[in-house]
Design a protein around this nucleic acid. Sequence first.
DNA 1: AATTACGATATGTATGTACATAATTGTCAA
DNA 2: TTGACAATTATGTACATACATATCGTAATT
Lengths: 248, 248
Amino acid sequence: MSPPVVPAKDGDPVPAGIRVPNSFRAIKAEILKRISERVWLPGELIPGEEDLAREFGCARVTVNRALRELAEIGLVERKRRAGTRIAEHPLREARLEIPVVRSEVEARGAQYRFSILSRERLEAPEGIRARLDLAAGTPMLHVRCLHFADNRPWQYEDRWIHIAAVPEIADEPFERMSPNEWLVKFAPFSEMEIGLSAAAASREEATLLAIEPGAPVFLFERTTWLIDQPITHVRMLHPQSYRMVSRF
Amino acid sequence: MSPPVVPAKDGDPVPAGIRVPNSFRAIKAEILKRISERVWLPGELIPGEEDLAREFGCARVTVNRALRELAEIGLVERKRRAGTRIAEHPLREARLEIPVVRSEVEARGAQYRFSILSRERLEAPEGIRARLDLAAGTPMLHVRCLHFADNRPWQYEDRWIHIAAVPEIADEPFERMSPNEWLVKFAPFSEMEIGLSAAAASREEATLLAIEPGAPVFLFERTTWLIDQPITHVRMLHPQSYRMVSRF
DNA sequence: AATTACGATATGTATGTACATAATTGTCAA
DNA sequence: TTGACAATTATGTACATACATATCGTAATT
């Protein structure tokens, strides 16, 4: 079923006052419904904006917005001349919240504490520089930090910060706030790349995390930029017991 | 610096033809720039849409769209009456694409192949039942499957399917399509829970993935529901070389 | 003092219109 | 057959305008 969302007349200038607000949401919902009820099958071309607008009794722009937002979450695919079609592989995406370590630990009812292992200004190694697209000799801050939950190692953090992008950090001692928290608070970013993988703990990492060398660790890497200015690259290592969860 | 994005006259009906397209992107960029250059600091209230529209020489709706999209990625916070302010804690979330194994392998330029290790109808063990919230005795389909990239083991999949939720699957031999692909194609879901962790390969898993027992593996678990009907629970095991990436 | 009512205000959304842009299709010529 | 080039078309975006809605401050009421 698909009753017109708006009972408006057809093409005449609407006499102001009978507009139905929020209809782009209603249209979004209706389209979603048609997808889930298999009225429109994956891969199928759906009617054009003009047609849908006529069917729903609303403006084309309104349909446009509904479809645009559905395209954003990957449920439909749109191409100019070609039209809109239901995504073949509803390329679903999970939303992973990027947590502040402290909140994450505290959310589990554990006591949070961190300790700075090292903090030095130096040039980043080739690999890091390449990832951040920075020239040799760029001054960077290297901070290594251990996070605890109830005094048990929770995360080992190895971070490189592009000082020029966050000049205030040069004098930050990280006594009260971990680098993680500091950056979240004072260094906004617009782009981010994350990588998730499993790895075997090196001898040093194993010692720090109080596990056996070679034991599996969960590796979470993150690089962030503001516009195109690299900010920081961080490797976060968790012992095997860690589990990242997301539901939606 | 902030030259007006559009050189349009002030308030008179624009004589059609001198509009600047894409200006909402330009405005977005300009605002991002001001954030990154700390013209506007975190927590600060920025001018209203009306003001910005006047400054940029464009329509309020255009500024609205720019700001709306910035709010979507969490860089600014907007409240009616209260105005727009730069986000204090750009509490961001990463979007992890949930791929179809085959596409994922092929996207890396490798050749995809899978093989079914086992396929049996039986009752699920307690742990799985609990996770899916199903009663003892519920008939389920248990499928174990190995996915290859260029003939090297890529993923070991251990899946439980709630037959009542997807009755058509009872007779599916998975000869041409892997369970993963079949479900993606024919079993829509509305809710999903994913878990990411690192683990040590058991002897059996190690044999299947052609790695050493105890070697680190990347474990990706997923449970899906349609409304509140459980569909499937799957454990996907990747050898250490696997890396899940997301950028935006 | 606490509660309620109300007006002011910034953002939110809908509409008709106009033009922009990408991609497909058809046409014609080499 | 092929390559170049238009014509076509669906989506993409801009704008002026109008109304919707949430929420803050303030004034009136309890």
